[in-house]
Design a protein around this nucleic acid. Structure first.
Lengths: 213, 213
DNA sequence: TAAACTTGTTTAATTTTTTAACAATCTCTA
DNA sequence: TAGAGATTGTTAAAAAATTAAACAAGTTTA
């Protein structure tokens, strides 16, 4: 039960990181942890950790700290890993294929139910247990299976029109790897833009300007 | 020539986005653009755009706006796309392979000079024109070819020790796709953590809490 | 030439994010 | 079981980032 309905994006973006570190602690058999210890591991301040967590509830205990397993579960629930949304992959080339097979969707609240490409060599194949269909059958498939989320792994050029088709088919969540920016054209849509090339350019800038400071 | 030596990370992280949009405009044959027009396309305010760009120099002209091609070039220079750093890929599995073949390194200031994996089925193979070597030859290769940057696409478990080996071999830039966080253990290192799973969990949170607002 | 634009820059206001501080309360040991 | 030590939840303050407003100076265009 959220204490604060107006949680900032900065806090939300830190939650998966907490989840990751707590999972690690849990696997290592650590039972309890204090915000102070956690702060040293994670590079946040203890103050920020306590404040972040308290956006969602008081999960700790004075004098004790946090129970690792309980906090892990709580954050998992907050992030929604226990309720699965149906997701489709659009663009099953190199990158799309790798992401779909690399990502453990089930552990993160998603279920991959279909993949699409226009390349006849790919159509009919599989990614893990998921079939690859022709991209022309997108609408039919969506009408039947009602996926909620799409992973966009197509080139920049067709991206805009494919996003439009998906939107018209009822999809409201996008995990976008294309260079096309899914903007606020659609106000009721939730997008995570990954933009790997932006990340690489940020790295380039930092490396090439590191000595100039 | 930077006007401001103390450019905030927020500004830096916006630069690749400007670069992307300007590239698009250039490809579309647009000659000039004003901060106002750009603001409508990009979703920033015109004021912020002018302020961001002026961290690096005055690239526009009163009454005219910005020359698209010139500004594109300038931002490219700022980001360092014209000076190549040697990069190696560590972990040539599904994800590593896809990223290395998907990313156009040459257009972004990098040159892929080697890939490494421990899987004998991969060793000896190629990613585009780059050979895949045994991970045991990492140190030898680094001594010979002095790569500056490494892309980390190995599982969480070996990540820490591999990063240490790379650090000891002189690598100071990391593009990290592993779940291991390359922390400030190494103060003189520059890291871009990608963390795809964090992005997916952020999407999950937003989708599953969208109606609760 | 003059009106209409648009930048670069400064200043101020606002919002967001981070840090600090501490009372309340729990744990743990002797 | 009492008391020292630890640690949270929460509030308040500080810092940083963003947005907005304003305008002189220079450019374009009719």
């Amino acid at each position: 039960m959220p204490r604060n309905d107006n949680i900032s994006m900065s806090v939300i973006k830190r939650m998966p990181r907490y989840y990751r570190f707590l999972g690690k602690l849990k696997d290592d058999g650590i039972i309890r942890i204090s915000s102070c210890e956690l702060s040293k591991m994670m590079g946040f301040t203890a103050s920020q950790i306590r404040q972040d967590l308290n956006c969602f509830g008081g999960f700790g205990q004075q004098g004790y700290g946090y129970n690792v397993e309980q906090l892990y579960e709580e954050i998992g629930n907050i992030l929604g890993v226990n309720t699965a949304l149906n997701v489709i992959l659009v663009g099953a080339g190199n990158l799309g294929h790798a992401i779909a097979s690399h990502m453990e969707f089930e552990r993160r609240g998603f279920k991959l139910i279909g993949a699409f490409d226009e390349n006849p060599n790919l159509i009919g194949g599989k990614i893990k247990d998921t079939e690859i269909y022709s991209i022309s059958s997108l609408e039919d498939f969506c009408n039947h299976h009602k996926p909620e989320v799409a992973i966009i792994c197509v080139p920049t050029n067709p991206a805009a029109s494919i996003v439009e088709r998906l939107y018209n088919s009822g999809i409201r969540g996008f995990w976008n790897y294309s260079h096309y920016d899914i903007l606020s054209v659609y106000p009721d849509v939730i997008v995570e833009n990954v933009h790997l090339s932006d990340s690489l350019l940020t790295l380039s800038y930092q490396l090439k300007n590191a000595n100039k400071d």
